[in-house]
Design a protein around this nucleic acid. Sequence first.
DNA 1: AATCAAAACTGACAAAAGTCATCTTTTTCG
DNA 2: CGAAAAAGATGACTTTTGTCAGTTTTGATT
Lengths: 238, 238
Amino acid sequence: MAKVEFNIACTLCDHLKDSLFNGLNPEDMSRINNHKTCIQYKKGQNIFYEGTRPTGLYCMNGGKVKVYKNNVQGKEFIIYIAKPGDFLGYRALLSEDFYKATATVLEDAKICFIPKESFFEVLQKNPVFMRRVVQAVCNEMGIMEEKLAELAHKSVRERLAANLLMLKETYGMEGEGSTLIELALSREDLASIVGTATETVIRLLSEFKTDGLIAFEGKKIRVLDARKLAKQADLIIA
Amino acid sequence: MAKVEFNIACTLCDHLKDSLFNGLNPEDMSRINNHKTCIQYKKGQNIFYEGTRPTGLYCMNGGKVKVYKNNVQGKEFIIYIAKPGDFLGYRALLSEDFYKATATVLEDAKICFIPKESFFEVLQKNPVFMRRVVQAVCNEMGIMEEKLAELAHKSVRERLAANLLMLKETYGMEGEGSTLIELALSREDLASIVGTATETVIRLLSEFKTDGLIAFEGKKIRVLDARKLAKQADLIIA
DNA sequence: AATCAAAACTGACAAAAGTCATCTTTTTCG
DNA sequence: CGAAAAAGATGACTTTTGTCAGTTTTGATT
């Protein structure tokens, strides 16, 4: 599987508006642009591995990537799923640390690599950009705190419902009275997001389907009744 | 319960060396020092509440504070326990967000409050300090990722053992062949750290005690056999 | 189209952990 | 000091979830 390069100017990137690079001044933008390398990845390829050192920042231009940790028994826990516009691997980069997770392509992806030096240069010279990055990191931390509490005290059923709603928010394609989650997840991956066994996800999904909360469309899930799903997630009391 | 003020110059603070303020230039240091308000809190008092807006940064000078989230049923999950030298509430401050957790005093505490403006001023003027703060935040994020995976896939027994070892690392007082955890935690708080029911913690602790892994000293726990505890935590295979 | 492998699914069962009720011990505070 | 409250402990029981074993379906490949 040879790595296929491609090239697109950051200023012309479709996802610039969703990215932290948005609003960068021309000088900084070209610094990033001139040093980046863009590569196309196929499903299943790895972007980086837990335990290795980051040498730069990945910026998603297309596709989906899962970032996950493996435990001793080889069980996966998916920390998040990156979509176009997202940065990848900046946590380890900013804390001068090893990667604490592995990144693998879920759907064929186009990803630009920005060398550490260029990224840090812009970060140092541009306090506004620095401020935005800090804000983004802290925001993500807030989300993780939320997840921690959820994992600690919610049942698998509640967590699955909550995660389906979350996926709907992030990857949802609005239809008439229903929303298609534009993400072809295997049951196994969904289990790794929720933090449970594959069989349990299968059973619960088919319950949700029987109850008319969701429907299956190929490998994708359509949310039919978000309100009832929220009730299952224990987000609504009534 | 009236709030009791106290005063101590940052430069003379015993915990400066453990703090992110360490190494600050005299100008920035005095900016922080001149605007801070230091207050003594009693066990059980709250420092800040989930859902409110931060107006500044708390810097611990003494005591212990738990930062936790309450779920719908009122069950607590403790995100971390702050000790002298630690910053408190900077996540919400930096992401311009509400507090996503509540902070309550576990052991009588002395805490200095630095107004938002002063903190941001130093942050803006001092890129080295900014860099260190970012590094600290990202480091903490790495720890939270670890916790997430642990919570998702480890048993309560493993998590309790792992958390006892963690507490030993952070609050441990080395003795001869054993370590006293210098933190008077109730069984309930320990359960909120591990993410389980109080009864389960009680049962497991008494098993650990029977097996000679730990001993109780008043409200505190002494780790007798860290190696066996690590085995229980599934950190060592053999 | 036939074959193979992976993914999805199902059922039976066991283990883990939560809940509830009750009792004892410790702590707090008037 | 003594009463009341809080924390700790224990047993019985239920529920949830994981595991294992096996079957069916789907999808990819030749």
